[in-house]
Write a protein that binds this DNA or RNA. Structure first.
Length: 407
RNA sequence: GUGGGAUUAGCUCAGUUGGUUAGAGCACUGGUUUGUGGUGCCGGGGGUCACGGGUUCGAGCCCCGCAUCCCACCCCA
């Protein structure tokens, strides 16, 4: 038997019901916030991700599905959504056009990682990106949108919040932190020694207890923000407070992608195992110019759909449409004909084998039909069809020609 | 990429120190005496015990390999 590739799953039946319900819920909410759909290619030039996500990140460093195509282009399957949307934004000259552009998207992302629960090689994200709004109100809107989506789906969460500073305060802090790391010398774990070079901010995230003991005295970025970043961060907290969005400040929240600045946030769930991040996002004011666009403020987030799936509280299923059954083979052509008419405006499933009424009712029940419509000898003789409303438990007999006329 | 655990019916799992024809619940399917469902009762189908080797008179069970999933590391959605 040929199996799907490792970490690449089919989505069907119950899972697809949930998937579909998630997409429609998130789409509705994103539209309510004034966002428009954007579709970008799954395959992009590798350079796009190297320049945006950053070569120091694990995503680009070791997790990309990268290959050379037949035209000798260095390409890869997108590992995340933001880079492609920004590329599209610049390529379509929306940066020069000016104004505000708000997009939402959903689709497959690919990362070559070792799979486990909540971590797949092909997974699905729902994300939004907002271009042209400098105000921290947009950051708050992003967070409120995620909260709305999760709320609508009945998903509990914790919100972690941090500020990463901007080009004025981050570099100075970074130097200060490197100085601190060096002062710790060999006491730090191997990973932290490595992070000192690749991405010093990440050491704060280290899970090694010994390192964490030392980091208690480490300088915190949140205490080194410039006035602008500090003010924005205060505003953000105050907006969230007035809108009843609970959050916790997490000074170790740094996000794995290089392009973030100022606001960084992450929604986590305690109910899905170790891969607990269900949504993450933040501001990335510099990314557009990194990708050769005109400097444009931007902020966005992405939700990991698979991680949410089992948390979604589905609405009660309602009975819809018709089930058609024949009690003898001679009645079958009639029910097929009738079903075809019904299908112009409603759902109709047809059972092809003739069986007794009791079994048709069971069948209609099983497919969650609202109406069970059956033709037997009596109906055939009188040119009628027997229909039972399975919710109201009321039955009726209708003249066939009325139904067939499509009324 | 590193370390550990698991894998038996569509699903969730039993299966004794290695010993005849591998079980249960749920699901599916049919019946339940003249045309009335969900939830009663009775029956039925369905397994190369993940896959490939090995040990043994004999392997679902022991050994080796491999695939996938799960857990931890790492990282992230």
């Amino acid at each position: 038997m040929i199996q799907s590739l490792r970490g690449m799953n089919d989505i069907l039946e119950e899972n697809y019901e949930r998937f579909d319900y998630f997409i429609s819920t998130a789409t509705r909410i994103a539209k309510n916030y004034g966002f428009h759909y954007i579709e970008t290619p799954l395959l992009e030039e590798t350079a796009l991700f190297k320049r945006s996500v950053g070569e120091s990140s694990d995503i680009v460093g070791k997790e990309m599905y990268q290959f050379t195509d037949k035209g000798n282009n260095d390409v890869c399957l997108r590992p995340e959504g933001t880079a492609g949307v920004v590329r599209a934004f610049v390529q379509n000259k929306l940066d020069k056009k000016g104004g505000i552009h708000r997009f939402y998207y959903h689709g497959s992302m690919f990362r070559y990682e070792r799979p486990q629960k909540g971590r797949l090689r092909q997974f699905h994200q729902f994300g939004v990106e907002s271009f042209g709004v400098e105000s921290v109100h947009e950051d708050a809107s992003m967070i409120m949108m995620v909260a709305d989506i999760l709320g609508a789906l009945g998903i509990g969460y914790r919100l972690k919040l941090n500020s990463l500073g901007n080009q004025n305060c981050m570099p100075a802090y970074r130097e200060k932190l490197i100085g601190f790391i060096e002062s710790c010398g060999d006491a730090l774990c191997e990973d932290c020694q490595r992070r000192k070079i690749t991405n010093p901010i990440r050491v704060l995230d280290c899970k090694n207890d010994n390192c964490q003991t030392l980091y208690v005295n480490a300088p915190k970025l949140i205490n080194h923000l410039c006035d602008e970043c500090q003010n924005d961060f205060e505003s953000l907290k105050s907006i969230l407070d007035t809108n009843n969005i609970a959050y916790e400040i997490d000074t170790h929240l740094v996000r794995g992608l290089d392009y973030y600045s100022k606001t960084a946030f992450e929604f986590v769930s305690d109910a899905i195992g170790s891969q607990s991040a269900i949504a993450g996002g933040g501001r990335y004011d510099r990314l557009i110019e990194f990708l050769d666009g005109k400097p444009t403020p931007a902020v966005g987030f992405a939700l990991g759909i698979e991680r949410l799936l089992e948390l979604i509280v589905m609405p009660e299923t309602v009975r819809v449409g018709y089930y058609f059954g024949a009690m003898e083979d001679e009645s079958l052509p009639l029910i097929i004909q009738t079903a075809q008419v019904i299908r112009k405006g409603n759902k109709a499933v047809v059972e092809y084998s003739a069986k007794k009424l009791q079994n048709h009712l069971k069948g209609a029940d099983r497919v969650n039909a609202r109406y069970c419509a059956v033709i037997g000898e009596n109906e055939r003789n009188s040119n009628t069809i027997w229909i039972k409303d399975l919710v109201l438990q009321k039955e009726s007999i209708m003249a066939l020609d009325i139904l067939l006329k499509g009324e």
